[in-house]
Amino acid sequence: MGLKCEVMGWGRMFWGGPLASYLVYIDVQLIPAERCAKLLNVPVIGAMDDLLCAMDEENTTKQQPCYGDWGSPLMHGDIVYGIVSNIVGCGSANLPSVYTDVYKMVDWIEDKIETFSAGVFYFIDSLVLLAAAFAHLGSFVLFDFV
């Protein structure tokens, strides 16, 4: 088995069950892409390029992310390795959970942050200019009346 990780989320406690009323942590272990593809009955090449798979094979727990956990982190210590992307198991003891591999997607993530940040700054700059224009117009109009 691979690296032991922790997943946290606010999703359903079990298939068809209630949403968690507190942040729930589960323990899983990464599994090789070949094994994951075989368990999910998908081709290894292409389908698993930017994904990670993990399972809890402990017979007493069989924990997995469930509905409502999309976007939750797959962590080891304080490092995020993946993000819950596909709810496959959620109560099925023999299927792995699937995560987007953060490391392989870092360029895309940085691009989105940069794009979003530029948009936010452009919006803020536009508001400042608009406020300055109104202030200038207001003072100009006030000057005309004096």
Rank of each mutant, 00 (worst) to 15 (best):
G71F: 05
Y122M: 13
G68W: 08
H136K: 14
S139N: 12
L3W: 04
C53E: 01
S97K: 02
G138L: 11
E110N: 13
R12P: 01
M1E: 05
G119N: 11
L23I: 04
L137T: 09
P65R: 06
V141L: 15
S97D: 05
L130F: 14
V88S: 10
M105Y: 07
M1S: 12
K4N: 13
F143L: 09
L40T: 02
V84I: 08
C36F: 09
M8K: 14
E114P: 01
E58S: 13
Q29V: 05
F121H: 11
V44T: 12
Q63C: 07
C5I: 02
D50C: 01
I31F: 04
V42F: 11
A93W: 09
S126K: 14
G71Y: 00
V88F: 03
E114N: 15
M13W: 02
T61K: 15
R35Y: 10
S117V: 08
D50W: 00
E114R: 14
F134I: 06
I113E: 05
M55K: 09
L3G: 03
I87N: 04
F145M: 11
M105K: 14
I45R: 13
L19H: 06
F143M: 12
P96R: 07
W70V: 09
A33N: 11
L30N: 03
F14Q: 09
S126E: 05
K4F: 05
P96F: 04
I124Q: 10
W15V: 07
F14P: 02
V88N: 01
C36A: 05
D49W: 07
P43D: 10
G89I: 04
P96N: 09
A54Y: 04
C5Y: 02
K112C: 07
V120P: 00
K38W: 13
V28K: 07
G68E: 06
E114T: 15
Y99N: 01
Y67I: 11
V98M: 05
M13V: 14
V120W: 09
S97H: 02
F116D: 03
G71H: 04
D69Y: 03
V42M: 12
R12W: 06
K112V: 08
V146H: 13
V44L: 15
V141H: 07
I79D: 06
D49H: 09
C5L: 12
P32V: 08
M8I: 11
